[in-house]
Design a protein around this nucleic acid. Structure first.
Lengths: 221, 221
DNA sequence: CTATTATTCAATTAATCACTTGATTAGCAG
DNA sequence: CTGCTAATCAAGTGATTAATTGAATAATAG
């Protein structure tokens, strides 16, 4: 029957279902996208550069593990995380990996810290300074993700469109960029571009999912 | 070379290493034992009812995922969690599973809540009332685990030895039992036995690992 | 109705994983 | 040295998994 005969075996087999869902790199990437907000299968497949059928299968595995839920609207099926606790689990997993795996540190050092070795802005600081109009917060994620939910007061300038907006910034005002999370390159690339133009730019610590998890004010559609 | 060519693929492949470590029920059980404190391979194999070679392999996988560290002392190799964040990750995983998997709820209902449907005692309450001498806290885990670390002020009465101590309790004083965690049967079985003897007994919420994680006072060897 | 789009299903392949078994290594005692 | 114990290693198995492919289904538009 269901794996194992003792209660203990059975319950750990259940816990392992969640672990299994977290054991594939493509599924973890899908989870990060879903942490930004609800998305349909085809949209996820496009942004993750994976075949639709493959994404569909991964999403079903995530659903069977209880990590995502779906709803159908017309032709499309929209998936989202089944709760904040799932975003928290994902975050904790990444933190443990960064803490204890040398390879993660090396990757982060080589690919991210080479772009920006400045301390990121704490969430509370951004919250206070945006409220007081001292800084401008920019959300450099794609418009779809911004639309699904973003930091209250942030303006959306997807990284690909940043070039066109460079002239519009006041050189005296500090710009704080954020994206999908601490391992997303978008905000790193954004501050590099902004600084090349002589603008004052820093990154927010982490990204939108962590902001939302911290119960800071957001705008959702 | 190392899985994938883009930074994103590489970093998620690293995160998946941690997920993979959490994807096997026997490894999760080993993690729960290790959350009680340091243990050697043979001792883990005995308590988990698994072949030593199998346990050794699982522990090496956990180590490669950064979740445990080991030290050698004489003939024995002692393993322990590599940090509190690992215990936190394990706890979060179990909570997500309980929150979103119906099978977990059913297992808990059938095997645990049938023994004790009373609300468990919050940690802070136990802390205050033990300090004031209003209750007696008993640790019903095996002596080995108690020795590795326990709630400050708790006395060790392994479940198998509880029978012999039943006469020693003051019927007026409430007894609060704890064990390895919220999915461990030991404390449930203990309160059942105590109540059958007419004693006032309740469970602590969760177990020793969560107490320690909450930075409440512990005694360690 | 037919065509189109989004998603899922089903079958296949290659790769990985879990567990068992027996051999091997490392440390220690006599 | 020999014998003993704890742990690891190495090989082999059967099972599970990931990704690909092409077909099937469902909802909608014309």
């Amino acid at each position: 029957m269901s794996n194992g005969n003792t209660f203990k075996q059975q319950i750990f087999t259940q816990f392992a279902r969640v672990g299994k869902a977290l054991s594939n790199s493509n599924r973890l990437e899908l989870l990060e996208f879903l942490a930004q907000g609800e998305r349909c299968v085809e949209s996820l497949a496009r942004v993750a550069c994976l075949p639709v059928a493959n994404v569909s299968q991964h999403l079903q595995q995530l659903r069977q593990a209880g990590l995502v839920v779906s709803r159908k609207e017309g032709l499309k099926v929209y998936y989202q995380l089944s709760g904040d606790d799932v975003a928290c689990l994902f975050k904790t997993l990444c933190q443990v990996a960064e803490q204890h795996l040398a390879d993660v540190n090396q990757l982060v050092s080589n690919h991210l810290f080479t772009k920006d070795r400045l301390e990121p802005v704490p969430r509370e600081e951004l919250f206070n300074r945006v409220r007081d109009g001292q800084v401008v917060a920019i959300d450099v994620r794609p418009t779809l993700e911004y639309a699904a939910g973003h930091v209250l007061g942030a303006v959306n300038i997807p990284l690909d469109e940043l070039e066109q907006h460079l002239e519009g910034f006041d050189p005296k005002q500090e710009i704080i960029a954020y994206c999908r999370g601490p391992y997303c390159v978008l905000a790193f690339d954004a501050v590099v571009k902004l600084r090349q133009k002589g603008l004052k730019a820093r990154r927010l610590e982490d990204g939108y999912p962590e902001w939302k998890l911290a119960a800071l004010p957001v705008e959702e559609s």
